[in-house]
Design a binder for these strands. Structure first.
Lengths: 227, 227
DNA sequence: AGCGGGTCAAGAACACCGTTCTCGCTTCAT
DNA sequence: ATGAAGCGAGAACGGTGTTCTTGACCCGCT
């Protein structure tokens, strides 16, 4: 590896510091991040930030990528801590880790799964880290492939061909029917997390952890994971 | 009824015009609504809007309430057009109408089910119109109550007591177990719609209508609605 | 008929915001 | 040592939400 010049190193540190301060701002305030506020927190003038990020959107993109990777890492760690043979345990571990991360970082979660920022299209480099969680869920199903209960009804034709493409990309060795149910579970996972983080459950459900557990267990049933 | 003074009437019309223009702006641009832009579209100066709405948040709140009512009305109409005995058809009609409304009004949908606007707490008067869709789903289940297949596993205890409270408020005559499954379906409905509207399905699923139909049918199965 | 109170739109002003540009200063490579 | 490149400060531009003042208008009353 080429030795990084001192210049490049302090630049990378500054880059990191900006993101850290921005994350704190994001957690304190709502979703709208102010460059000038970030600069103030660093005793820096706003225009100086443009040495490191070409625009506010670029900084947001960097935060989004970091957040996807943070979420993915949290899920991966949690899943890795469960014995390989405990398939349902691994499924639930991924789900719980995603929820825990979202509740711990609600503003960043909003960046990832909330309203897309207006005028901002998610760049290509966000798609791979974004797929980490669903990839983990698929991996659990693959490991369980020969113990999965058959599922009914079968996936309708047009959906099946979409799924085939995804199976080639992510999860070889899984039937379209079972992949479909993983997809259902993935949708439900983030649907329920979004409801909770965005306050849609306020005044309706108090026992949220238990409800989450219950829902994700139902999804595991739907996939056909053995109890 | 008291005759509305002419003054009050033109004022109400102006109120309505502002909301219409704001809705158009919202559809054209992203989620961030600019009062000055609305004013420009009306050949009006921005400060004049403050005669009608005390703040930007107040205008947003009015739009949100209108949107909830529009969505609720769309779902209600669609459901009412299905024969009462076709329980699954009524369930699916509500789901389809919600999706169609969301796709037709993505920015307004984002207001309702996306990131909560920073510094903005949903006022009390939004909760009743917001509950319309789930209320319709519950109503279908109530009408189907004596034909619903039993569901397993049973709802865990702490969740059950939350559900009991909701049953008293919304859906008397439904078992906690079945109410729970309606809740699951409701979560999934808006989870999947959010995925689609917010672009989380881009590049993954093309046959979205078919996939939606499939998912919502699975949820109907989960509730125990007869085929 | 005339007057007074209430309502309205306009406009200036303030404090923010993202972004661009210029200007000195430091630091590095030659 | 010198030239080039990177850096932060600062001013500036056009945008935003919001407040306040000012003058015009309409309506109902005496």
């Amino acid at each position: 590896m080429s030795a990084p010049s001192l210049r490049a190193e302090v630049r990378a540190q500054m880059n990191q510091r900006i993101k850290d301060v921005a994350r704190r701002r994001l957690a304190a305030e709502g979703a709208n991040l102010s460059l000038r506020a970030v600069a103030r927190d660093m005793d820096i003038v706003a225009s100086a930030l443009y040495r490191y990020f070409p625009s506010r959107d670029a900084l947001l993109t960097a935060l989004i990528i970091d957040a996807y990777e943070s979420l993915g890492a949290a899920a991966e760690e949690a899943e890795a801590a469960v014995p390989r043979a405990d398939l349902r345990g691994r499924w639930l571990a991924v789900c719980r880790a995603a929820r825990a991360w979202a509740l711990a970082h609600p503003a960043e979660y909003g960046l990832l799964y909330g309203n897309p920022v207006p005028g901002y299209a998610a760049p290509q480099e966000t798609v791979r880290p974004a797929a980490k969680v669903v990839f983990l869920l698929v991996a659990v199903a693959i490991d369980a492939a020969d113990r999965l209960a058959p599922v009914t009804p079968a996936v309708p034709g047009p959906v099946r061909s979409d799924l085939r493409r995804l199976i080639d990309r992510y999860g070889g060795g899984l039937s379209a029917d079972h992949f479909d149910r993983v997809f259902v579970g993935w949708t439900h996972l983030f649907g329920l997390i979004s409801f909770e983080v965005f306050g849609r459950l306020d005044g309706m459900v108090d026992a949220r952890a238990e409800q989450f557990e219950h829902h994700m267990s139902l999804m595991a049933d739907l996939v056909g994971l053995p109890r």
